[in-house]
C-alpha cells in the first residue's frame, strides 16, 4: 500500500513581519494603534447624546472614524488612548475592544485586486467611506475604504498573521 507521510497541516508558525510589504502596485502595512470601541444601542440618539458625537445612520456608512456595522451596532476607531463614557444605567453598551483586533492598510492601484482575492464582496464598487463586516476566505474582517486606492482592514488579533500572509501570497 502507498504510504503517505503525515502532513503537518496546522503547525505553520506564521508571524506578522515588522516591515510593510511592498509589492508591484500594492502595499500592505500594519495600521497605527487605535482605541476601538463596540457601541451598541437600540436608539442611536442615546448613544449620540452620551458620546457627544454623530453616528452614521445606515449600515455600511462611516462617519469620523465610526462605522455602522449593524442596525444597533457601531465600531469606533478613535485615536489611541481615547476613553469613552460607559453609559452605566443607560440602554446602551460601550465596550473597549482596543486590543481585540489589529488593523491593516492596503494601499495602491492593486488594492482592490488584493482584497478581492479572498473577499466575496464587489469591493471595486465600494464608495469611499464604506465600511462593512465580511470575510476573507474563512476569516471575519471589517473592510473600510478610506480612499480611492486605500483600504483599512480590521481583523481579530489571532487571525492577523494568517490574513497577512494570505494577502501577501496574493500580492
Amino acid at each position: 500500500m502507498l504510504e503517505i507521510a503525515p502532513m503537518k497541516l496546522s503547525a505553520a508558525d506564521l508571524a506578522l513581519p515588522a516591515e510593510a510589504l511592498v509589492a508591484d502596485g500594492v502595499q500592505l502595512a500594519l495600521a497605527d494603534d487605535y482605541a476601538r470601541f463596540s457601541l451598541r444601542a437600540r436608539d442611536a440618539a442615546i448613544l449620540e447624546g452620551l458620546l457627544g458625537r454623530k453616528l452614521p445612520a445606515k449600515i455600511g456608512e462611516t462617519l469620523d472614524g465610526v462605522a455602522c456595522l449593524g442596525p444597533d451596532e457601531w465600531l469606533a476607531l478613535l485615536p489611541a488612548g481615547t476613553a469613552l463614557p460607559l453609559g452605566e444605567g443607560l440602554p446602551v453598551s460601550v465596550t473597549d475592544i482596543s486590543s481585540r483586533a489589529l488593523g491593516f492598510v492596503v494601499e495602491g492601484p492593486r488594492a482592490v485586486e488584493l482584497i478581492t482575492s479572498g473577499c466575496p464582496l464587489d469591493v471595486a464598487k465600494f464608495p469611499i467611506g464604506r465600511g462593512t463586516r465580511t470575510v476573507f476566505e474563512t476569516v471575519e474582517i471589517v473592510v473600510w475604504r478610506t480612499a480611492e486606492a486605500r483600504f483599512h482592514i480590521e481583523v481579530w488579533r489571532s487571525f492577523a498573521p494568517w490574513l497577512w500572509h494570505a494577502l501577501a501570497a496574493a500580492a
Binding site: 497541516l9 496546522s10 505553520a12 506564521l14 489571532s158 494568517w162 500572509h165 494570505a166 501570497a169
Partner: peptide, 8 residues
C-alpha cells in the same frame, strides 16, 4: 502554512 488559520 495557509491551510487554515492557526490562532496563537
Amino acid at each position: 502554512a495557509l491551510f487554515q488559520p492557526l490562532r496563537k
